[in-house]
Design a protein around this nucleic acid. Structure first.
Lengths: 211, 211
DNA sequence: CATAAATAACTAACCAGTCAGTTAGTTAAT
DNA sequence: ATTAACTAACTGACTGGTTAGTTATTTATG
C-alpha cells in the first residue's frame, strides 16, 4: 500500500481509519470492536493505526468529534433564512429524511448510545456543540414565527424538541431494524405528514391551553 | 448467603441475577460487562451464575425476554377501551412519562441498541412481540376514532408512529444525558404539549392534503 | 430428639484463548 | 544512504467458562 508521506495524504489516511472504526464500532460496539479489524478494514496493520491515534479511546473520541463537526453551519443557515413557518416545515420534511437515509447519523447515534456510560464528558460535549445548537436554532425560528403572528405555541423549547422528535425515533428504528425487511416504512412520507400535522397544530386559528 | 432450595427461591435468585445484569449491561455495555461484576452485584460468585444461565449470551437473551414480556396486556387494555380521542391523548400524556421516568425501558433500550448488531434475531423478536403490537394498538385506535368522524388523518400507521415518537426521543435523551443536569427538561410537560398538538392536528375541522 | 449421610447450591482457583498496546525489524520513498 | 511509514511478532493483562472442593440444608436413621 502507498505510504502517506505528505500532510494531505496523512489526513486522508487518518480519515479512512476513522471511517473504518465507525463501521466496526457500529457493527460490534466499542468494546467488542477489535483494533486489528479496524486496521484491516482501513487496509493497514494494527500497529499502523497507533501511528495516528494514541489508543482505542483516543480513536473513539476523535471519531465522534470528526463526525459531528461539519453539520452545524448548514443548520444555522437553514434556520437563519426568512422562511414562512409552512415553507420551513416543508423544506425540513425534504431535508431530514436524507440525514436518516444518507448520512452517518444513525451509525453515530448507535455508537454514542452504546458507549454513553463510558464517556460522559464526550456525551456532554456532543450535546453542547451539536444538539443544543440544533434545538436552539429551531426554537429561535419558532419564536420569530410566533412574533410575526404566524403560529401560536405553548413552549418554544419543548415544541422544538417535538418537531425534531421523529429524528431520533427514525435513527433508532434504523439502528435496530436496518436489515429487517418487514420493519421498513416510508420515512420520507412520515416526515411530510409530520410537517402537515405541525402546521395544523401551530396554526393560530384555535385555542391553545397553556397548562 | 441463603441458598435457593425451593423453586420459588430459585426464581427469585434468577430474577435478581437478571436485574444485576441489566444494571451492568446498562453501565458498561454487553461486551464490557464482566460476569464477575454481575455476580457480585447479585451477591453471588461468578460460577453460581452459570448454575442459572448457560453463558453470557443466554443471560442476555433471557434478560431481554424477561423485561419486555409483562407490559403488553396493559397496552392492549388501554387502547381497547372506548375513549374519545381527546381523552385518550390526555391519558396517554399522563402514562407515557412514567414509562420514561420509572421503568427499566431506557436501560433496556440502551442495552438493545448497543447490542443490535450482535443479536439481530432478538431484535426482530422484540419488534414483533412488543413494538409492532404497540404501534398496531395505536393504529387501530386511530382508525376507530376516524371512523367515528372524531379525527381526520392521512395514514394511520405513520400517524401512530408520530404519536409515539416522543417516547424513543426521551428514552434516548435519558440514556445519553441522565447525569447531565443542564440537559434536563420537563418530560411530563412535553407529553402534555404533544397531546394538545396532536388533538389540534387531527381535528376534523380542516383540510389535510394526502400526498 | 440428636446425629450422620446425602446432596444440591455454591465458590476459589484454574485454564485457554483473546486482544490492546509495544517492539524490533522491514520497506517504500526521498 | 537515510528515514519515516509500516508490519509481524511479542507480551502481559484480562475474562468467559470450567473444575475440584466446600458447605448449607434436607433427609434418613437409631
Amino acid at each position: 500500500m502507498q505510504r502517506a508521506r505528505t500532510d494531505e495524504a496523512k489526513d486522508e489516511r487518518r480519515l479512512s481509519i476513522l471511517m473504518a472504526s465507525l463501521d466496526e464500532f457500529y457493527e460490534k460496539g466499542f468494546a467488542a470492536a477489535r483494533m486489528d479489524d479496524i486496521a484491516r478494514r482501513a487496509g493497514l496493520s494494527k500497529a499502523a493505526v497507533y501511528l495516528y491515534f494514541k489508543n482505542k479511546d483516543a480513536l473513539f473520541t476523535e471519531l465522534l468529534r470528526e463526525i459531528s463537526s461539519p453539520k452545524l453551519d448548514y443548520i444555522d443557515a437553514f434556520f437563519g433564512r426568512d422562511l414562512s413557518f409552512e415553507e420551513a416545515m416543508n423544506q425540513f420534511a425534504e431535508f431530514l429524511p436524507t440525514v436518516i437515509l444518507n448520512s452517518p447519523m444513525p451509525k453515530m447515534l448507535k455508537v454514542m448510545i452504546g458507549e454513553s456510560g463510558g464517556h460522559p464528558k464526550l456525551m456532554r460535549e456532543f450535546r453542547e456543540t451539536v444538539l443544543d445548537r440544533v434545538i436552539c436554532a429551531v426554537r429561535t425560528f419558532l419564536e420569530r414565527a410566533e412574533a410575526r403572528g404566524e403560529i401560536q405555541l405553548i413552549d418554544a423549547d419543548l415544541t422544538a424538541r417535538l418537531i425534531l422528535s421523529p429524528m431520533p425515533m427514525n435513527g433508532m428504528w434504523r439502528i435496530l431494524f436496518e436489515s429487517d425487511a418487514e420493519a421498513q416504512f416510508d420515512v420520507s412520507r412520515m416526515f411530510k405528514i409530520h410537517a402537515l400535522y405541525m402546521i395544523r397544530a401551530l396554526s393560530p386559528s384555535g385555542d391553545l391551553h397553556a397548562s
